[in-house]
Design a protein around this nucleic acid. Structure first.
Length: 289
DNA sequence: TTCAATGTTTAGAC
DNA sequence: GGTCTAAACATTGA
């Protein structure tokens, strides 16, 4: 699913439920979804969680780590019990109508069984997502980890860093450039459109055409979009304890994403939809020049 | 029936 | 080798 804010929201929510638990058993219902020998992590205890770009890391005892990429349609759903025996649940990921229903379901690819009887379901309709196992010291050297660009919410991510990273692709449009995980990590199709709206930049602008002033606006626009996403729990809201409903909160606050044909929230001009690199881009032709 | 969906990865053309 | 584009992956629902 999701992009940095959603992945971070899920990570935080899941963390509260599974830290300290021990993995008793893993059912792999789809080989592509769990790309390692499940026996490697059986009996290991969950120590901590972290995030890098759109990857969730779960550090286990004995130096093992689970790495999870939800791609387009992944979900993580934890089902357990509270101390007084009431049902306890955490749901995060790509929202689907059935994600508050009975688990497992048709999209369930992997099931983790924990020592306290709780279960973690990895659902993934399109099977693009994966879970891998890595070992201490090797995690950062994994091919999908080592080339990632800087984290946009870290202090070190200044506008000069943004400029340097984007200039790797001077002939690309700015929309496509900020989505390149090697340039900046964590921005996907939703937040790219949102960041450019915040920055008042036309998504078709070439990177080479951006001046420093625009680069600074883009820097702030990216951070604002991502932080807004986290604040509202992502566009595919993570659900805690028996919560109902299935629509992400952030999309209610989105300025342009999925608002094609609707009036711009600032100037009432109709939001345009174009295709860039095979993906939809949303923007306001009047506010974004 | 056809198209698009919150993401990478790869094959091909310059 | 670098850069860029389109297709591929797999499934569902509008």
């Amino acid at each position: 699913m999701p992009e940095l804010p959603e992945v971070e929201t899920i990570r935080l929510g899941l963390s509260k439920k599974i830290i300290g638990l021990t993995i008793k058993k893993i059912d792999v219902l789809n080989n592509k979804s769990f790309q390692a020998d499940p026996n490697l992590v059986r009996g290991k205890k969950v120590l901590k969680t972290w995030r890098r770009a759109k990857i969730i890391g779960i550090d286990l005892s004995d130096g093992f780590s689970l790495l999870i990429h939800l791609k387009m349609s992944g979900q993580l759903i934890w089902v357990g019990e509270t101390k007084i025996g009431k049902k306890d649940k955490f749901i995060g990921g790509h929202p689907t109508p059935d994600w508050i229903g009975q688990m497992p379901n048709k999209a369930t690819r992997v099931i983790f069984h924990f020592n306290d009887g709780s279960k973690l379901f990895f659902n993934d309709q399109r099977k693009f997502g994966w879970i891998r196992v890595s070992e201490k010291g090797k995690v950062k050297r994994e091919k999908f980890m080592k080339d990632l660009g800087p984290e946009p919410l870290e202090r070190e991510f200044t506008w000069q860093v943004l400029k340097r990273q984007l200039l790797k692709h001077k002939n690309l449009t700015v929309k496509m450039a900020i989505m390149d995980q090697q340039a900046i990590s964590g921005i996907g199709n939703i937040y790219a459109s949102e960041a450019l709206f915040n920055a008042k930049l036309d998504p078709r602008t070439k990177v080479s055409e951006l001046n420093d002033k625009q680069m600074k606006r883009l820097h702030v626009g990216i951070i604002k979009a991502l932080e807004g996403g986290i604040k509202y729990g992502g566009s595919s809201r993570a659900h805690f304890v028996n919560e109902e409903g299935n629509k992400g909160l952030f999309l209610d606050y989105a300025s342009v994403y999925q608002r094609g044909g609707l009036p711009c929230k600032i100037c009432k001009t109709k939001i345009q939809v174009i295709r860039q690199g095979g993906r939809s881009t949303f923007y306001c032709p009047k506010c974004q020049k």
